[in-house]
């Protein structure tokens, strides 16, 4: 059976795996964005804390993904739990880092003007600082997404969702019927997903960058 025959005969199974793969990545990025932007907002003005946040999230990235997923099993069992937690941990660094950098790059005069006009600190953050830092933060989110789309495949190791199952299955029985096709189909699916996400971010960036900030 050729690869294309394999793909068309397993179409339902493959699209379901791809859908789950996309879902687990999207959920992880959503949670990482909430946490990462929050951490960035709380630390960007305190150099020591900001350094600590960056170092800690960078530390997460150095843990091998097999080890991290495996170590989470005693606490979270198998499946979605450890997968989500691991992916969130891996995606934090670019988001935290870019939030801090983006907020620091906002012109202090703009913040002073906002405060001087009687906007509360929270309102200046929500209406002025975050919108101005948004293109930089979004770039961080995009990098995180690209990173964890690949890592998510490894989640099959803890019975997580996604295209990783195809790849692991194939690799486990390499040499038997359709083993190579399964591994290739899973890998290709990951690549296609990555491209689709990137296209999505391109559109998001165009739609969410304020007109006054576009070159």
């Amino acid at each position: 059976m050729t690869l294309s025959e394999y793909v068309s005969s397993r179409w339902d199974e493959l699209t379901q795996a791809a859908g789950q793969h996309a879902l687990v990545v999207a959920l992880s990025i959503l949670m990482a964005t909430l946490i990462g932007v929050g951490v960035g907002v709380l630390t960007y003005r305190r150099p020591r804390l900001a350094g600590l946040a960056t170092a800690a999230t960078a530390g997460f990235l150095t843990i091998p993904s097999f080890a991290l997923l495996g170590l989470l099993i005693p606490f979270l069992g198998l499946g979605w739990g450890p997968t989500l937690v691991a992916l969130v941990m891996y995606s934090l660094l670019p988001i935290v880092r870019n939030t801090i950098v983006g907020l620091r790059a906002v012109d202090p005069a703009v913040v002073e003007a906002g405060r001087g006009m009687g906007m509360s600190a929270a309102r200046v953050m929500a209406r002025v600082q975050l919108p101005l830092a948004w293109p930089v933060i979004l770039a961080g989110i995009r990098v995180s997404t690209q990173m964890i789309i690949g890592i998510a495949a490894i989640a099959a190791y803890v019975a997580g969702p996604g295209l990783g199952n195809q790849i692991f299955d194939g690799l486990a029985r390499l040499g038997s019927v359709n083993a190579l096709n399964a591994a290739l189909a899973g890998t290709l699916g990951v690549v296609v997903l990555a491209l689709a996400f990137d296209l999505f971010y391109l559109v998001v960036r165009l739609l969410t960058t304020p007109r006054g900030l576009r070159a």
Binding site: D107, A109, V110, V111, E112, A113, G114, R115, G116, M117, G118, M119, S120, V128, P131, L132, P210, R211, G212, L213
Partner: peptide
């Protein structure tokens, strides 16, 4: 409350500080 006080005081600074993302 400082925020309410500031809404009643016009404030102009050298760097102007217009919000670039707003018209």
């Amino acid at each position: 409350p400082p925020d309410q006080l500031r809404r009643r005081i016009g404030y102009v600074i050298q760097q102007i500080g217009l919000f670039p993302h707003l018209t």
